[in-house]
Amino acid sequence: MHELSLMEAVRDQALAAAHADGAIRITVISLRVGELAGVELEALRFAFPVAMAGTIAAGAELRIESEAAECHCTACDAPFPAPDGCCDCPRCGAISRQLLRGRDLRLLSLEVV
């Protein structure tokens, strides 16, 4: 359960960026969370209002873009989805050693006024 400390990092980065911009309120916070980032989305949503309380982001909307895991198969020379992190190619069965995406954990953008 490290989602609260992650959300505190979101808050700190968001407040710093809003402050630098001269914004008075944060209305939307957008994140990208990879399927293999080891983060529970429900716990992240639960932590959001707790972390933002008492700041200019209180009451903001949380948007989460989920990033599906995807590998590249060298045998087929094509990408394939790797649900649950399983890297065996559904076409040929070869195990891919190339994870293209799925581990990202990123603050994408803010909407501010």
Binding site: A9, L105, R106, V112
Partner: peptide, 18 residues
């Protein structure tokens, strides 16, 4: 009245950057 117009700030920063 909002003090300024709504706008989007693009950040793309890693959450674990620290």
């Amino acid at each position: 009245v909002p003090a300024s117009a709504p706008r989007e700030l693009t950040l793309h920063t890693a959450l674990l950057q620290r």
